[in-house]
Amino acid sequence: MLDESQKPCCLPLKEEFQRSKFSLHHDDPRVFCRSQWQRGDRNILWLLYRWIWAAFFAGGVIGSLVNSYNGGTWFIYLTDWGFTLCFYACTYGAVVATIYFIKPSYFAPGSVALKIYWLSHYTTVVIAMMITLVFWAALYPSMPEMGAELYNLWAHAFNSIFMIFDCFMVAFPTRIMHFVYPFAAGITYGIFSLIYFWSGGTDFMGNRYIYFILDWERPGLAIGTVFGCVALVSCFCLCVFGFYRLRLSIYNCCGRKQVEIPETRASTETVQTA
């Protein structure tokens, strides 16, 4: 098997576009429970890191719900969906790390729990980046007074910063073909906004739209927004893969060699017989 550092720079990207890369199976469950940078199987600093992130986002979600519930309209905003995803993914990761710390042999290859963690983490990072860009590029200019609000920064800036940072800390790989999961999340929200409009729903100020760029009374604008977000998701999926490759490059430059373990048994057999 080739060491990651010995592969041509274009080969990893080419290898991503295979049907097997849609799979969420991975033969080494440890990569979902450990940091790329830790030594040994168990590391208390990694465990603390995971729970600090979980507590950080938990505080944001709970505080926002208390201050901005607004008769339940808190639940209609993509910002709050995305921030809740950050809380969910980080808490899930903390639970996984805790279980592994207590009993390293607990997770088996192909564990459903780890598959859920893998797809939720990837989806969360991509959606967080999209929320950040769309807010600051399209929404913030019409509401500049919100720029300095703590929750606004928390949910539209810190979300992406911290999730991207986490991409450089985890040990599991990123797969471009997992783009289907953030796509599904984005399309789900688009359909939800349309159903909400059809059912007569309003935002907390009584407007017939959730976001003015997603106003279904102007279907051209709304559809354009949906397709624009789909394009952004595509770009951010590539970005997250780039973060993963950069993480491996930094790891290799630090004198440690990363040998990637194939996700599927089929791919393992291919490597062994090559």
Rank of each mutant, 00 (worst) to 15 (best):
Y100D: 00
T98I: 06
V112Y: 08
F107P: 00
A97F: 04
F75V: 07
F75S: 08
G110D: 10
I76C: 09
G82D: 12
D80Q: 10
I127E: 15
T73G: 03
G93D: 01
Y140K: 06
I116M: 02
T123I: 12
W81Y: 15
Y117I: 02
N70V: 02
L114V: 01
S120G: 14
L85S: 15
I99M: 00
K103H: 08
T124I: 10
A94I: 03
G110W: 05
I127A: 15
Y77C: 06
I131N: 07
Y77L: 10
T73K: 07
A89P: 05
I127V: 15
D80R: 11
I76F: 11
Y77A: 08
T98N: 06
Y77V: 06
A97G: 05
V134I: 11
A89I: 02
T132L: 14
G72P: 04
G93Q: 02
I99H: 01
M130H: 08
A137G: 05
Y117W: 04
W74K: 15
L133G: 04
Y88H: 09
I131K: 03
Y92T: 06
W136S: 05
I102M: 12
W136F: 07
S105T: 06
G72Y: 04
H121I: 09
F87I: 06
W74N: 13
H121W: 11
Y77H: 12
F107G: 00
